[in-house]
Design a protein around this nucleic acid. Structure first.
Lengths: 195, 195
DNA sequence: CGAGCGCTTGATTGAGTTCAAAAATCGTGG
DNA sequence: CCACGATTTTTGAACTCAATCAAGCGCTCG
């Protein structure tokens, strides 16, 4: 089996081939199509979704009906609502498919079990949590301080690959600006670069 | 010994009296004055700070020299830069004292050791991490969607106690608006309430 | 008691939004 | 493979919320 998921496991712990087999046998994998939903606001989030192929996103809808994209998840990423799944509370998030995807459905048990089997895995798990926190912090900083242009430039640097795979209005949504504004920002940037 | 710190420990695990004694004996406690710094941008954050008395805050300074308050920490709260301390990277945060404070300095070891001694404590630790994530998520949502007024109303609901203890310009900084704007928001709100 | 800090108020400005419509691009079925 | 409808992006004009700049007031604490 050749997949990002296996890479994910091998990088974080070294299980035996037998252990792999067992881990994988317990796992739900699904093939999903663009537009499919994995989670809707109001539901309790029961899984972490490992993206083996394709592209997912999570977003909220505010009281004015506007989408705000929280996260993109390309290959090798995990996407979920940690609060909801950890505290078994209903989620504010939607998670859906941007590009046809192959997704591993991971339950809390999955992480618990593997953490028991491998201290390395447990550690890498904690590390992932802290990474997540760091990302959220950075995002808050961006939203508190940065102009539309700053935000876009930051995004280009951080996620050049994603930039090419999603429509512009989603980038705008992620940055917390309107598609129109982003269009103007881009225009302005090309103008600057040509003189 | 009567302190919020003991409450914190008892709520999260049941150590014996002897264990308490040992835990406490290993601990640095400091009395700090308004304006004292516990962390400056550029330093690596080596501790989590448990506020036993008083009030702390963390904040960043953006490239225009503006402060953005990230968190307030009253009695019973822990404040730190988790990313910096976990990854041993230099921090972007400042942490300083708003009201004279008594603070326990907790090293990473502290959490590791107690987590070994008590599975309960380990669990409550993980829970704290998830709580933190939830707060950050909520903050991001606020910054993406809410107007100045919305933000202030949310703040009043969530932190009525803190509202009374910090100058208004700090609340404004936390909300991501200017002191002038907050002043106007408040004016408008009182107007609304009187007719 | 006075200097400084925090809060308020007013006038002006500006970044980004909104609304509308045209232009470009995508994708899907015939 | 083309054509047509849908979606996305761009552009324009008016508007809005909050920022900025500036001035005055009141309190406190040194």
């Amino acid at each position: 089996m050749n997949s990002d998921f296996k890479t994910y496991l091998t990088q974080n712990a070294n299980f035996s081939e037998e252990q792999y087999a067992e881990i994988l046998s317990d796992l739900q994998v699904k093939n999903l199509k663009k537009g499919d939903f994995l989670l809707r606001s109001g539901e309790v989030c029961l899984h972490s979704f490992f993206v083996n192929k394709g592209l997912l996103r999570s977003y909220t809808i505010d009281k004015n009906g506007k989408e705000h994209i929280i996260q993109f998840a390309p290959e090798g990423w995990i996407i979920t609502d940690r609060s909801s799944s950890f505290f078994h509370e209903s989620s504010d998030l939607f998670i859906d498919v941007i590009e046809d995807a192959e997704v591993f459905f991971l339950e809390d048990k999955f992480f618990e079990n593997l953490s028991c089997l491998s201290a390395e895995f447990a550690k890498s798990n904690t590390q992932a949590l802290h990474n997540h926190i760091r990302n959220l912090q950075d995002r808050i900083n961006m939203l508190l301080g940065a102009t539309a242009e700053d935000r876009y430039l930051q995004f280009i640097k951080m996620y050049p690959d994603i930039l090419l795979r999603v429509p512009q209005w989603m980038v705008a949504s992620y940055l917390g600006i309107t598609p129109e504004s982003l269009s103007r920002v881009r225009k302005e940037l090309t103008r600057k670069n040509f003189k």
